[in-house]
């Protein structure tokens, strides 16, 4: 039975996971369904499987990351794969090595799957054209972070039972956020209504072309929302060129208990982390287990990545 299931999965999924934009709704649902099975496993005493025994997974991180990297590492290990993590940082770039050089030398080691994060949009696409194995995008530039969107979707489904028909607000630095983009594509695909809320300087002009409504104030944007997804505001955006100051941002766009009241009564809060407490979110609110899904997001992140590794590793 298990073999039959595996085989059907192979037929249904593409070679690489580069972004939600390239994903069909069937593929997205397949990953989410698969991930549900792993939630229980991860909560049990014995978490180890041997589905990927003998497979090699390389995590290639050109950009520093804590939770995505550890999440992928754990996911691979729990499935029995040999996991190697490379923090390339800027060191090899300084030595004049390009991403393709790095990729080609790794390719020579015959990995089955490469998980890549890179500061340039499109870098995983370039990589996927040059290596033989599967490439999973763990975040590229401002473009996509597909597994984050999938884990967010799973978290919502886990709590609300569905995505279709929900109203979801994404709030923060939309312009520079790959998490926002991937979430927009996936939530739209799964039938949610998506509002994005940001100061004008951090909201792309063409945002409505992505099928969402753009707002520049929380009051309108949060009205009757089921989920409020906050984004991290990076330090370099806070001073001067995009925004005048942290405190002005917090005043207008920081999520406080008062502003949360603008959304539905049972609205829940999400954040991809790491959080800037007191900048984009009130610190008590972030820790309030009745409304904050932040810890659950991290937990389900492992399950989603296990599902991806299982389905994409052939």
């Amino acid at each position: 039975m298990a073999i039959v299931k595996k085989f059907s999965a192979i037929k249904k999924i593409q070679k690489h996971l580069l972004g939600i934009q390239n994903l069909s709704i069937q593929e997205a649902n397949l990953i989410l369904d698969e991930a549900k099975n792993f939630i229980k496993l991860n909560r049990s005493a014995s978490k180890k499987l041997d589905l990927l025994r003998g497979k090699t997974q390389i995590n290639l991180f050109f950009e520093p990351s804590t939770r995505t990297q550890s999440s992928f590492e754990l996911a691979g290990k729990r499935l029995g794969a040999d996991v190697m993590t490379m923090n390339v940082g800027n060191s090899s770039l300084k030595k004049g090595e390009t991403i393709l050089d790095t990729a080609m030398s790794l390719n020579a080691m015959h990995p089955d799957i490469i998980v890549v994060r890179h500061q340039d949009s499109g870098a995983p696409n370039l990589l996927s054209q040059k290596v033989n194995c599967t490439v999973i995008n763990a975040g590229d530039g401002l473009r996509e972070h597909p597994t984050q969107a999938l884990l967010d979707a799973l978290t919502i489904i886990n709590r609300k039972g569905k995505i279709e028909g929900l109203k979801i607000a994404i709030c923060g630095d939309i312009l520079h956020s790959r998490v926002a983009r991937s979430n927009i594509y996936l939530l739209n695909m799964l039938g949610a209504e998506v509002n994005v809320i940001a100061p004008k300087t951090l909201l792309p002009n063409s945002i409505s072309k992505l099928g969402v409504k753009g707002f520049t104030n929380m009051k309108e944007g949060l009205a009757s929302c089921d989920i409020v997804m906050m984004l991290r505001l990076q330090n370099e955006r806070m001073t001067g060129s995009f925004l005048p100051s942290k405190r002005e941002y917090y005043e207008y766009f920081g999520l406080t208990p008062d502003k949360l009241k603008l959304a539905k009564k049972d609205a829940l809060i999400m954040h991809p982390g790491p959080m800037n407490r007191g900048v984009e979110i009130d610190t008590k609110l972030a820790d309030d287990i009745n409304v904050s899904l932040v810890k659950e997001q991290v937990e389900l992140g492992v399950a989603v990545r296990m599902a991806c590794l299982k389905l994409y590793c052939k």
Partner: peptide, 12 residues
């Protein structure tokens, strides 16, 4: 060029 394509590709 700035617009939908640049937003989708994640390029400024």
């Amino acid at each position: 060029s700035e617009g939908e394509v640049s937003t989708r590709l994640g390029l400024q």
